[in-house]
Design a protein around this nucleic acid. Structure first.
Lengths: 147, 147
DNA sequence: CCTTAATTGAAAATGAATATCAATTTCTTT
DNA sequence: AAAGAAATTGATATTCATTTTCAATTAAGG
């Protein structure tokens, strides 16, 4: 699946969600969603707003917040807080879930994935009577540049 | 080790940290620290403030924030954000680290621990050139009452 | 004690996120 | 294509958690 097809898939998912909820498609929403879907990093409000304003005439920050809330509700974005006071939005990778390693010195965020850990999580939860829907795993430490 | 000895241990650790940094011991600090060390849950500012004011005449909210910052710096408290906009402070259990399972319906927080997961985390990080200092693992799902 | 430096509370300031509201835009129905 | 209903928008005001400021107070060492 090409990046482009992936983008179109996500835009279509969003459209479907909006249709199902009597929500209207607007230039602002499309711009913000597209910028978000194209982002790889954990984008924050300011970045979204700056990029969106380059494409579409006038966009207020409230609209960015509102659009991101919509993307979260529709399951296309995940809000994350890494401790610096601002929410960042994660674009779910099409190849599935990943976790994060954050350098406590330079703040670099690296993604990783370990299926064995995922399996053990499900097992642990099951023992406690929990049905897991989602999870967050963050390792904090020093990257090899800062270590 | 009794609960009381444990409390005294922590108070002593704090004292040692303060001495080493030319910080003064005050009634407010002692009160807040003690309340925090005695707490089992993930206590937030409001709870700390309410309890502290019952013990010590006047305590401003700024002082609670300042004291918790001190406890974090000294490694005796860990700040956590579960997504409801406010920081909660976790008292490190004397028997070591634990992780959390959060019910997305009733918000109940259950603690668990799995050493196998911890080991795999270290291994994953090592492969990426990271030295892990700390980590957060949160599983979100439905508890057996809500599931 | 007495001096110095740290600490405190009250109030003001900051900053992220949300709510308000009149004006605008989309979508459906003629 | 035009109109009407309903949703959306941007600017502004607001909320709420947290931080800063600063004059007055207090702790600790000499």
């Amino acid at each position: 699946m090409s990046n482009n097809a992936d983008l179109e898939n996500r835009m279509a998912s969003l459209k479907a969600y909006m249709d199902a909820n009597h929500l209207k498609s607007t230039a602002q929403r499309d711009t913000i969603a597209e910028i978000f879907f194209k982002s790889n990093t954990h984008i924050n409000l300011e970045e979204l707003l700056t990029k969106a304003r380059k494409k579409t005439a006038k966009i207020g920050h409230a609209t960015v917040y509102r659009t991101m809330k919509l993307l979260i509700e529709s399951g296309l974005a995940v809000p994350r807080q890494f401790g610096d006071g601002q929410t960042r939005y994660e674009n779910l990778p099409r190849d599935g879930h990943h976790d994060h390693i954050i350098c406590i010195k330079c703040s670099k965020i690296t993604e990783f994935r370990n299926d064995e850990i995922e399996a053990l999580q499900l097992e642990s939860a099951k023992k406690l009577g929990f049905k897991v829907i989602n999870h967050k795993l963050e390792l904090y430490g020093y990257c090899n540049s800062c270590g």
